[in-house]
């Protein structure tokens, strides 16, 4: 039987992305990961966010917290109608890069090791596989961000249902910024996966080597200032700026986008040269 529909180049990308969603939500391993993340988020919501919001309701304490922020301008968060979202924002900016790394730690490494990639490459190009897997992991992280933010929003509504409309801008702001923040981490994992063909080594480098390199650059930059620009090659360089934003800013949008495109380009170059 011959295939009746010759499809466009983007269909395989979408099929690979869909398959990644199936992997997370319809396999035992994927569901275990989702359940684990749900438990972690339950504790974050129930203890960290809920308790913090109780504290923030005290005006005296709010003033004190404002002074604690010091150089980091986070005062705008105190103006948000739902403090839940404010606390969520501060926590998730640090947590989601880790989740993105974990979720995307095995994009193609296992397939290459097992030889499954050889079945796939009879039907798709290496670039389609790369983009499909990247898109799939991005969709998964987006869904997880959306679900956690929705839970936080519902907590806020539960406390004060009058502020729903006023909180929508913050909701969108957080959602888009978190997705953008995670993109270069997912793309970096694509690159590490393609190069090292091991999810464990990719994780090790993302969690240990990259922070070490980042610190090293910071140290060198104290003596040679231009070395600071090297930090722009690493994901999360705009993290402080992103956290301080009260609105969409070009730098916090462009840096992760350029990094993502750069990492994906490098991954594609690695993959097309690689023996599989």
């Amino acid at each position: 039987m011959q295939a009746k529909n010759q499809h466009s180049n983007l269909i395989p990308v979408w099929l690979f992305a869909q398959f990644e969603l199936t992997r997370l939500f319809f396999t035992k391993r994927g569901l275990f990961l989702v359940a684990s993340l749900a438990i972690v988020w339950f504790f974050i919501l129930d203890f960290l966010i809920y308790e913090s919001v109780q504290l923030l309701r005290d005006p005296l304490l709010r003033d004190q917290i404002s002074s604690w922020f010091g150089e980091v301008q986070l005062d705008y968060l105190l103006q948000w109608p739902y403090s839940e979202l404010a606390v969520y924002w501060i926590i998730s900016v640090f947590i989601f890069p880790f989740i993105a790394i974990l979720i995307s730690s095995d994009q193609i490494a296992s397939d290459i090791k097992r030889g499954t990639v050889r079945f796939l490459l009879l039907r798709s190009t290496r670039s389609q596989l790369l983009l499909g897997r990247f898109l799939g992991k991005t969709l998964i992280v987006t869904i997880l961000i959306f679900l956690s933010i929705l839970a936080t929003f519902l907590m806020g509504i539960n406390r004060d249902a009058t502020q729903i409309v006023n909180s929508i801008p913050q909701l969108i702001l957080i959602l888009f910024n978190l997705i953008l923040l995670c993109l270069p981490y997912i793309a970096l994992m694509s690159l590490l996966n393609a190069h090292f063909q091991s999810s464990k080594i990719s994780l090790l480098i993302a969690f240990i080597i990259v922070p070490v390199i980042s610190s090293l650059i910071g140290y060198i930059a104290t003596y040679i200032e231009p070395a600071d620009y090297l930090l722009y090659a690493l994901p999360g360089v705009q993290l402080t700026d992103t956290l301080q934003l009260a609105d969409f800013q070009l730098s916090s949008l462009l840096i992760p986008l350029i990094q993502t495109i750069g990492y994906l380009f490098l991954t594609q170059q690695v993959l097309v040269r690689k023996s599989l």
Binding site: A3, K4, N5, Q6, H7, I11, P12, L15, F19, T22, R23, T27, K28, R29, G30, S110, D111, R114, G115, T116, R118, F119, L120, L122, R123, S124
Partner: peptide, 27 residues
């Protein structure tokens, strides 16, 4: 092709994977 030593993904059923391959081919 039947590549030497290549294995299917152990996390999915045969059906899911073969159907996916067929879809990649335009079915």
């Amino acid at each position: 092709a039947l590549p030497q030593d290549a294995q299917l993904d152990p996390n999915f059923t045969i059906k899911t994977q073969l159907e996916m391959y067929a879809k990649l081919q335009g079915f």
